[in-house]
Amino acid sequence: MAHRIGKYTIVLDQPPSILATAAIGSKKEREGPLEKSFDFICDDPYFEQDSWEKAESIMQTKAVNTALGKAGLQPQEIDAIFAGDLLNQCVGSSYGLRELGIPFMGVYGACSTMAESLLGASVFLDSGALNRAVACTSSHFCAAERQYRFPLEYGGQRTPTAQWTATAAGAAVLGKDGPSPYVRAVTIGTIEDLGITDANNMGAAMAPAAAVTIQRFMEDTGKKPSDFDLVITGDLGKVGSDLVRDLLLREGIKLENSHTDCGLMLYDLEKQDMHAGGSGCGCSAGVMCGHILPLMREDTLHEIVFVATGALMNPTVVQQGESIASIAHLVYLSTKKEGGAV
């Protein structure tokens, strides 16, 4: 059974194994540096459907089925699935997964959803309540754009701090026993808000949440960022990454050399004109499930702290003048089942 260290961090005593992962992307993701990391790329962002919402659902179906295929498992062998996305009421997940017949937990953590779903699945597995679970997350540029901003054909100008919602999905199959990597500990984030109101500057809005969660994890475990191969934040982009490093430095935590951000990895920011970087929960889902977790499986990376950040606003509250509340959940992954940081 899991136990707590410090105030915020939950250590998993039977660390669940990540049995297999899959990542799905579209055209922009193919044009980026991580093309090879994706299991399936459909250049048509409609994924042969007639609406963006259906396209996103298909991405989730594909991500889960591909991951299950790689793990050699059937849907009926999965005890529960934890999934979420950015669409209203999480329809990307619920409609994408409705045919599978797997017990379903809908998760909403905005762009932090990949960490939140991994976290939920892992703690359930550790408790013995489940034997196998899937964590799945997606976002779709077009579906998000029409919901949060403007019609796609609308002629608007993006500011330099704006981030690009990834059209990507990632799924991870977790099991009680299995090979590396393992989910060793998790830190649940608190809702942070330092008053940023610019919806085109999500990185700045979310950086405090990431800083707080990283600081708590380091304090709870007595470690520092350089003890890990990578502290990888989800979707802070260029602006948010600079800010999180700065914020942590003020607390005496040096992130500098061991930090990267999923939003900076998925695209070639200059060449693809991505402004401040990638975002959307599919961004960290794609990067983790397509790139980082497989590198851990190959034993190239060993100790990873994954901190996915999410902005918990919607267009209604932003139009009403609310500032952007945000959150960051942390998952500590290791190739070792014991030892390491916890």
Binding site: P160, L194, G195, P208, D246, L247
Partner: peptide, 14 residues
């Protein structure tokens, strides 16, 4: 950090 301080910091980084 107060929102005012952070606002300054964020403006500088953006």
């Amino acid at each position: 950090m107060s929102p005012e301080e952070y606002d300054k910091l964020a403006k500088k980084a953006s």
